[in-house]
Simulated assay, not measured.
Amino acid sequence: MAHDVAITGHGVLTAFGFGEQALLDGVFGGRPGFTPVTRFDPTPYRAGHAATYEGEGPEIPGVPVKPGVTPGQFEVLVACAAAALEMAGTDGAGAPVLLGTNGDHSAAPDFWSGTGARTAADPRTLDSLPARLPELLARELGLGAPRTAFVNACVAGTNALARGAELVRRGLADTVVCGGAYLVTEDVFAKFDSGRALSPEDAVRPFDAGRQGLLHGDGVAVLVLEAADRARARGARVLAGLTGWGMAADAHHVIQPHPRGDGLARAARAALRRAGAEPGRIGYVNAHGTGTPLNDVAETAALHQVFGEGVHGVPVSSTKSSTGHMLEATGAVEAVITMLALREGLLPPTLGTLEPDPACDLDHVRDTARPARITHALSLNAAFGGVDAALVLEAP
């Protein structure tokens, strides 16, 4: 028997602070989260801004944050997971834990410079191992197994949700705790900067003719997925249905997206098929929208493939213009944003557009949120190596 998949709880952190109200005030309020980098000296780099949480806005329960200091990824995951379970009204006992994460790299500069501990016994070094974080989270909160880390970059959080939904749908788990985490650290920042992927501006301008690149942002989100029938039977509130998910790989290039967006289009079509939804039912697309020259054109081409002549009737926005690119956490945080769009009847905007790129001819939600009562939304993510993923969320 196939089970419908429901989202019953979430906990989320972005540069705007902890919880959904911070997202509503920041992302839906049309605020960019970018500030000058203070966690490390950005002088050697082309870029100098990121969307980091510096302790302003709603605080992370149990996690003191000092300006200029990266909080621990594990501690933030615990806070988000605890909030998600509380919202869902369950302790999650026995639930698998699936996280998109590349580990906590906050200690990496100290490790490589020799100023910090360089032994395997150092907890900060151990936390850089991705698989350690779902293991520790499960132990801390009494969750179950499997405990899996997804490390395929910007689709990792999306893949964690897709895998969790598959476990629920097949009846292999009643409840799954899944999500993603990334907090801005110098080693990852430096790699993106050396590849000239980061914008030298203090803004990200997706789909703009003058876009110059992405900027990183703090992001952690944990969601509770359940079999919808069982959730309702125990009186849980269903926040949204996760009705479709799709994954694809076009292997076009180690970094560059397929120019026609073939892999992303396949992932979106697969998600729509699984959801049993025709493209015309989609009322909003939360685009990957990195603000890089190649991604935005390729994603536009993918949406033209998926929606055909109806593409200009589908509102699209990139919330990375507000939150920054949260790497492994991106799909999880953007799933929460998309879920809030369904609930609030409000589509979050793309910020920073100065001159729309004619090659990105879509119905862009620009500058301010747009009221719209919708029942289905599509969230897209793409990553290095040509891997792509898509989710379809449905209003309860």
Rank of each mutant, 00 (worst) to 15 (best):
A359E: 15
P58T: 12
P96N: 11
I60L: 03
A369M: 00
G280R: 15
R370F: 08
A117C: 02
G289Q: 02
G213E: 00
A145K: 04
R118Y: 12
E86Y: 01
R124E: 10
D202S: 08
K320W: 14
V168T: 05
L346Q: 02
T290K: 02
I7G: 02
H10S: 13
D25A: 15
A240K: 08
D4R: 04
R373V: 14
T292W: 15
A275T: 04
G386F: 09
A84Y: 14
W112A: 09
S128C: 08
A203R: 10
L214H: 03
A270N: 05
E186W: 03
G114M: 07
T119I: 14
D174G: 14
P123S: 14
V336G: 05
F28V: 08
L167W: 13
G68K: 00
L303P: 11
A389K: 09
A395Q: 12
L354G: 15
S194V: 11
G94D: 06
G241A: 12
G263M: 05
S321T: 03
G210V: 09
D104F: 08
R211L: 04
L99P: 07
G116P: 06
G19W: 10
P130A: 09
G261E: 01
R118L: 11
G246N: 10
A277G: 09
P67F: 03
Q21H: 13
P42K: 09
G144V: 04
R266K: 08
R196Q: 12
F40D: 02
E86M: 05
L347I: 05
L172N: 14
P371F: 00
L214W: 04
A275I: 10
G195D: 09
V238Q: 05
H10M: 13
P200G: 06
D218F: 14
R269D: 14
L129K: 01
F150M: 03
V69W: 12
H49R: 05
A131H: 13
L129S: 08
L346H: 05
T148G: 00
V27E: 10
R169G: 02
A265V: 04
T101P: 00
F40G: 05
H216K: 04
F189A: 04
H10I: 01
N295I: 07
A15M: 07
G291E: 10
L346P: 03
A267D: 12
R234S: 15
A117L: 12
D41K: 07
P293Y: 13
G33E: 12
E309V: 03
G289E: 01
E166S: 11
V184K: 10
E226A: 00
G280Y: 09
G276R: 03
N295G: 11
M326P: 03
L167N: 08
A369W: 00
T185D: 15
V314L: 06
D110H: 10
A2P: 08
T43C: 01
G62L: 07
M247L: 12
R234W: 08
A369S: 02
G68M: 02
A120M: 13
G48V: 08
G210W: 11
G17W: 13
H304D: 04
D296I: 05
R39A: 11
V297M: 06
A389Y: 07
A107P: 07
G17P: 01
E355T: 15
P109M: 11
A249P: 09
